[in-house]
């Protein structure tokens, strides 16, 4: 039954993806800035002052920007369905290859942040709910406030100053692939992970705490206590699974957000993930790459939400056959 449910939900994502592709395609075309000029080295009158009409026209043709937009879209969609997101006008590398080359870095960072965030958030969120108004609760509240109030880039810069510049323990930027040097990989990923993990944790703690407090008032909890179960079982078996039902949805959303990468964090740490690629591609008006990355991130979001739905169905027996 779960399999059939999964398949049905998967089919349901198709129209969503189609609509997203149309929106992404048109939105990217709406980004102001003349990509022909950018290709010709014109940016804010910085260096180039003479561009000939002939070259402009030649570049226009080369970039294919004069074709009707529906034609451009149809061509793009046709290729995208075959896994070809086009080739950047700036270089000869297929957009898909660039994305795939940079995806691991983003995924590792997202996973590390999620793991760190979850390891912090779940015990702290639950403890805060169970021991309301104690120091644990205040600590959790502090983490939440800190995470929500302080901007990520500030935390990032402070961490860099402390651990990079003053203590010299960790590198301040960059990335090493785990297969190249695992220790260096960990050293590079630590600071961005802390920043993103903290942000993630703040969201999750807030959610878990509130939801847990609500769950604790439920009748089934009294039943569990009436059975003589230990508090540990009551909390971590009975309440936890129910609370996770709601939390999974939030997690799914947060995780998909992380999978899209964090532009500011990747930028500060010169971390070669896909969202920094997106930022640079927007600067370069490299629309093929922008479209590719955005549609890819959209796919990730849809997919993560889909996974969250399936997980929700796994956890929540009530939804399965509906």
């Amino acid at each position: 039954m779960l399999i059939r449910y999964s398949l049905r939900r998967l089919l349901e994502t198709i129209p969503t993806l189609f609509i997203i592709s149309v929106i992404v395609f048109s939105l990217v075309l709406l980004i102001p800035g003349d990509r022909v000029l950018v290709m010709l080295g014109y940016s804010g009158g910085d260096i180039a002052d003479v561009i000939s009409k002939e070259v402009y026209a030649a570049m226009e043709i080369r970039l294919g920007v004069n074709d009707p937009i529906p034609l451009q879209y149809a061509r793009w969609l046709g290729r995208a369905l075959q896994g070809d997101l086009g080739t950047s006008p700036l270089h000869a590398i297929p957009v898909m290859d660039i994305i795939l080359a940079r995806l691991p870095a983003t995924i590792y960072l997202a996973l590390a942040s999620i793991i760190l965030g979850t390891l912090v958030a779940i015990p702290l969120g639950v403890a805060a709910a169970v021991k309301q108004n104690t120091w644990v609760d205040h600590l959790a509240n502090g983490v939440v406030l800190f995470g929500l109030v302080t901007p990520g880039f500030w935390v990032a810069l402070m961490l860099v100053l402390l651990f990079g510049v003053y203590l010299g323990w960790l590198p301040t930027f960059g990335y090493t692939a785990p297969q190249d040097d695992f220790v260096e990989f960990l050293r590079h990923i630590t600071l961005p992970t802390i920043v993103l993990g903290l942000d993630f944790a703040a969201n999750v703690i807030r959610f878990i705490r509130t939801d847990f407090i609500e769950q604790m008032r439920e009748d089934y909890v009294r039943t569990a206590r009436a059975k003589g179960l230990s508090e540990r079982l009551v909390i971590w078996k009975h309440i936890f699974k129910n609370s996770m039902l709601a939390t999974v949805t939030v997690l799914g959303f947060d995780i998909s957000r992380l999978m899209g990468g964090s532009t500011i964090i990747e930028s500060i740490f010169a971390y070669p993930g896909i969202s920094f690629l997106l930022l640079q591609s927007i600067f370069n008006r490299d629309f093929a790459t922008v479209q590719g990355v955005v549609i890819f991130i959209a796919l990730m979001v849809v997919f993560m939400n889909y996974l969250a739905d399936i997980l929700y169905a796994l956890l929540n027996p009530r939804i399965r056959y509906e």
């Binding site: 860099v160 590198p171 301040t172 930027f173 500060i268 740490f269």
Partner: peptide
């Protein structure tokens, strides 16, 4: 190495 943020460049230079 592309490091877009001037602050990050300064920090990386210090380290």
């Amino acid at each position: 190495q592309l490091i877009a943020s001037a602050t990050s460049r300064g920090n990386a230079l210090r380290t």
